[in-house]
Simulated assay, not measured.
Amino acid sequence: MKSTGSITDEQAHTYATWFRALADPTRVRLLHLLAGAGRPMTVGELVAQVEVGQSTVSHHLKILAEVRFVLPEKQGTSTLYAVNRTCLSVFPRAVRSIMGEETPDGC
């Protein structure tokens, strides 16, 4: 695997995926709502707080789950989504590693 400085190709790909996941204002708002709630929420609860439809919210949550920014948990016929504080806390370190200020870390 090629490395430029202290960031490997794999880490660069991971970080780019994280940035893409946050490149949509609705996804940022969903993360903010989940973090502020301090508890897992259903898609329906989130839809009630944003100005987009259920399918759009579900799509955005799928993208956030793929990078582990949210953690889905099935409960009966519903899925609850919780913010993954551990993963999101690594995000600033990714920025610092891109700047060459810190050793890269993963989520």
Rank of each mutant, 00 (worst) to 15 (best):
M1F: 01
S6T: 11
T8K: 11
T8N: 09
D9G: 10
E10S: 12
Q11K: 12
Q11I: 10
A12R: 14
Y15W: 13
T17M: 11
W18E: 06
F19M: 11
F19Q: 09
R20S: 07
A21H: 02
L22I: 03
L22G: 03
L22V: 03
A23C: 05
D24N: 10
P25S: 04
T26H: 01
T26Q: 00
V28H: 03
R29G: 00
R29K: 13
R29C: 05
L30V: 03
L31A: 05
L31D: 02
L31W: 04
L33F: 01
A35D: 11
G36W: 06
G36R: 12
A37L: 06
G38E: 04
R39G: 01
P40N: 03
P40H: 02
M41E: 03
M41R: 06
M41A: 07
T42Y: 07
G44D: 13
G44A: 15
G44E: 12
E45L: 03
A48T: 03
A48V: 03
A48N: 06
Q49P: 03
E51S: 10
E51A: 12
V52G: 00
V52H: 07
G53V: 04
Q54N: 09
S55R: 14
T56L: 10
T56S: 12
V57Q: 01
H59L: 12
H59S: 10
L61Y: 01
K62W: 04
I63P: 02
E66N: 14
V67R: 02
V67Y: 03
R68Q: 11
R68F: 10
F69V: 06
F69L: 15
V70M: 05
P72D: 06
P72N: 04
K74H: 07
K74M: 08
K74G: 04
G76M: 09
S78E: 13
S78I: 10
V83Y: 10
N84W: 00
T86V: 11
T86I: 10
C87N: 09
L88A: 02
V90Y: 07
A94R: 00
R96Q: 14
S97T: 13
S97Y: 05
I98E: 03
I98S: 00
M99D: 05
G100A: 07
E101G: 13
E102I: 09
E102P: 08
T103V: 15
T103L: 15
P104D: 05
D105L: 15
D105Y: 11
